[in-house]
Each structure stands twice: as C-alpha cells, then as structure tokens.
Amino acid sequence: MEQLLAISIGVLVAGSVYLMLARDLLRFLFGLILMSNAANLTIFVAGRLTPGAPPLVPDGVDAPVGLVANALPQALVLTAIVIGFGLFAFALVLTLRAYQSLGTLETSDMRIAEPDEPK
C-alpha cells in the first residue's frame, strides 16, 4: 500500500513539474494543484497506513481498542485541503483577471510591472 502511494506521489510530482515548466499560466496553476495534492498524500502516508481500522472508541471504554488508524494526519490533510482550496480559488480568479486586463497568459509576456529598461 505504501509503495503504491509512494509511486503515485512520484507520478503526481513528475506531472506537476512538467506542467509548471510550461509558459502558460493556467498550465502552471494546474501543476501547482497537482503538487499540492502530492504534498497532502505525503502527509497522509507519513502518518502510517492502517487500512480498514477506523479510530472509533467502543461504548464503555475511554480509548480505541487495538490497532486503529492515526486520525491526526487526516485532520492535517483536511486542513491543508481546505486552505489549498481557498488559495487556488484566489489564484484562478487572479489568472482570469490577468487574462482580462493583460490580454495574455504567456508568462514571458507578463512584463508590465517590470518593463525592460529603454536602451
């Protein structure tokens, strides 16, 4: 299970790097989203995997019985997903606005804030 997830993290990062090397801003953003998902999976795997053992406390005892899944990384990943969603929603709107006001998504053409010095 760990190997499978490790391989998929690798594939996600490879794909995201490929996308982020593109000059198109939208592709770059998709690459970022993929990479943030790879980071979330990393946290998930780092918390150790225990399939089919939800961390539930049975009636009458104070702590879960036996080996159960680690709930903390799931809480961390959930927080990270929510924050990531907010950030990427902003980034997408910014991209749309950039396309509207700059007329391009080619990153090499985006030089309005830092124009070349007149020769």
Partner: peptide
C-alpha cells in the same frame, strides 16, 4: 486591480 498590480500579483502568488 491596476495592470501593474495584477502582473506583480501573479508572480507573488505563484
């Protein structure tokens, strides 16, 4: 939302 701000904002955000 001036053009310079959007342009600088893209680099800052990414």
């Amino acid at each position: 939302g001036s053009r310079e701000q959007i342009d600088g904002g893209v680099k800052y955000v990414t």
